[in-house]
């Protein structure tokens, strides 16, 4: 899509103009004491706090902890949701048909109600938090994968069969490519929900993570820290979403422009991802998960280490 020179000039303005205006108003209202500073610190102060939190190096730890929890939870959800839906949708359709209403009820169980039970069964460590995220993300993945299985064009299956493809070949060449976009769509809804839920879960029962930082800041009435960590959460959520859109447009470039509600305001352009980019993306994700696990272990160790200054845990100025 080529833009005319004039449009190329005005586009960033229309795109980010209002956002920039909002930030400027925020900053000025702080500068001129239009609003009470103890409720709404100015933008520059929020940024300054964020920088200080990064310098004390604990914001990075908590961000990585949260990010890793989401990623592991999502991976668990995608793997188990896909296997479950294939089992119930293709291998044992009659069982799936009978069990589907039950799964709908399961999907309605609020993860918060499960959290105490998971703590009882799996202890206080990382497991219940990750499992709760997996639970949240599992149902969107499962149901949209099931819908994708039902939507497979029967002609494609017949064609493959008439060409003498074995069951395994049909599975690899027809079923997986046909359902992958639906699974991915489910995963996107799932990861969004999981990220929301994670922050709340970290607020109520965790000793690390971004939600914990917000909660801690609220408890200690450090207002600028509430805004700073809120900003990081927002940016992280935004990054995750854009990343998933990027991957989707690259991997499922053949899919019709599916207009799920959320993307109705997004421009649609899909081109195939190059193998090199794909490798780079996979590597980045692996590195982030590895780094995150290391950070989780570090956070745990620091928490249990009595010699570490309490500043690490409860950060005060």
């Amino acid at each position: 899509m080529k833009l005319s020179p004039k449009k190329a000039l005005t586009r960033p303005v229309t795109r980010y103009g209002l956002l920039a205006l909002l930030v400027i108003v925020w900053e000025l209202s702080g500068r001129f004491n239009l609003v009470d500073q103890s409720f709404l610190p100015s933008f520059s102060e929020t940024i300054a706090t964020t920088v200080v939190m990064f310098q004390k190096s604990f914001l990075f730890t908590h961000t990585m902890v949260s990010l890793t929890r989401v990623m592991i939870g999502l991976c668990l959800a995608v793997v188990s949701g896909t296997i479950l839906s294939y089992l119930l949708g293709r291998v044992l359709p009659s069982v799936g048909w009978t069990l589907e209403p039950l799964f709908r009820v399961f999907g309605l169980i609020n993860p918060y109600c499960l959290f105490p039970l998971l703590v009882v069964f799996f202890g206080l460590g990382e497991a219940p938090k990750i499992l709760i995220l997996a639970w949240v993300a599992l149902w969107p993945v499962f149901f949209s994968s099931l819908a994708g299985l039902k939507d497979i064009d029967p002609a494609l299956l017949q064609l493959a069969r008439s060409m003498g493809a074995s069951k395994i070949q049909i599975f690899y060449k027809v079923i997986i490519p046909a359902t992958a976009p639906s699974i991915f769509n489910g995963a996107r809804i799932g990861v969004e929900m999981a990220f929301f839920i994670l922050i709340a879960a970290e607020m109520t029962g965790a000793t690390a993570g971004l939600g914990w930082i917000v909660h801690n800041a609220g408890a200690l009435y450090q207002v600028s820290r509430i805004y700073a960590s809120g900003l990081i959460i927002v940016l992280l959520g935004f990054t995750i979403n854009r990343f998933l859109i990027f991957v989707r447009d690259g991997l499922f470039f053949w899919g019709r422009a599916s207009l799920s509600g959320r993307d109705s305001l997004l421009p649609q352009n899909r081109t195939r991802i190059s193998p090199l980019t794909l490798k780079a993306v996979t590597l980045t994700v692996a590195v982030v998960i590895g780094l995150g696990i290391y950070q989780i272990i570090m956070a745990e160790a620091k928490l249990n280490d009595p010699t570490v200054i309490p500043e690490y845990r409860v950060w005060t100025e």
Binding site: L19, M203, H215, V234, G237
Partner: peptide, 16 residues
């Protein structure tokens, strides 16, 4: 663009 950005705000970060 602003609404798209706002729509991704985490409600729990806002809750505080």
């Amino acid at each position: 663009p602003l609404l798209r950005f706002l729509g991704q705000f985490n409600p729990f970060a806002l809750f505080s």
